[in-house]
Amino acid sequence: MTTSAPVIGVVGNDVPRQLLLALGARPHRLTGSWTGAIDPDAAQLLGATDAVVARLLTELRSDAQPLDALIVCNDSQAHLRLFYVLRATASTVPVHLLDMPRDASEPARRFARFQLEALAAFCAAVTGRRLDAASLAAAADAEAAVGDALRRLRARRRADPPLCAGADALDAMLDAARLAPSEAVARLDAARAPVSPGAMRVHVTGSSHPDAAFYRELESEGRCVIVSEDHDTGEAAWLGEAVRGETTEHVLEGLSDAHFARVTTSATTSGSVRAAFTGDIAREAGADAVAAIIRELDEAPLWDLTDQRDVLEGIPFISGRVTPGEEIDAARDLVRELVDAAVSA
């Protein structure tokens, strides 16, 4: 794939990148940011919505990001609302909603297939290419290589002591979701950074992180290192997953299966599944403590806390709610609480 491939912006975590790659597009995940201005018009249009999504709309309305098209996933109310606003205000680029169902019933599988086909048709109209078995296979190879690089990064984070700090790892994963696959592999493999010995190993859950600012703050004094997370811009991002099949049909079927098999954002997952996911990853990563960081107006993760606490029995579990403008203070409080909790544990 060349760097001149049409760029398709992606909001949310349900897009099978392999499909976009096979159609000759470069997926570019858009996540917003922890800090930065919110255009009053964007805030007004969205109503009460997670500030990160309001910043994302601000960015989209300023056309700062040159995109050929945009896909928005119905994986949270905030994202869905963003789509409705873009549709109602005549966005400058073509916008498509990917509406994947959550329970793998027969009718839901049919609807998921319909959604993936509509997604492919939308992207094909942008790139002028058609899906075929050969391009899907090439895209599978490219995306699988990203998956391998992600596993290598994960192993470095899990090492004792870790060979890569959480903020650097998150930066690399966010970049990888924006680069062409070969560049993404290089970017992921380059993510290694010294971690101060003796730092507490922390697993992060709660809201997704639009950038690494919060991680950086948590790790800034060297008392904590984030070794894993289960939110959907980090390790739960749908990145590096590829499906092989003899025909286009088989691949679409496989992508649909893969969609239903994964655990993704809190808003779409039951409390029990999400809590089990948190517990599995935190234990596997050898976390000393778990921090749930939950942004104001991102309500779903609040409902997971009590199940997570049960599952994590024996591992200190701290939660903090973050209001816009108070991110830094919230991060500092969390570090203090984490250290205290570890001491008393």
């Binding site: 249009l45 109503g47 009460a48 609302r81 409705y84 109602a88």
Partner: peptide, 11 residues
């Protein structure tokens, strides 16, 4: 009256 769960009230 715009509640938290009203999408795109501005429109």
């Amino acid at each position: 009256l715009v509640a938290d769960d009203t999408p795109a009230p501005g429109v």
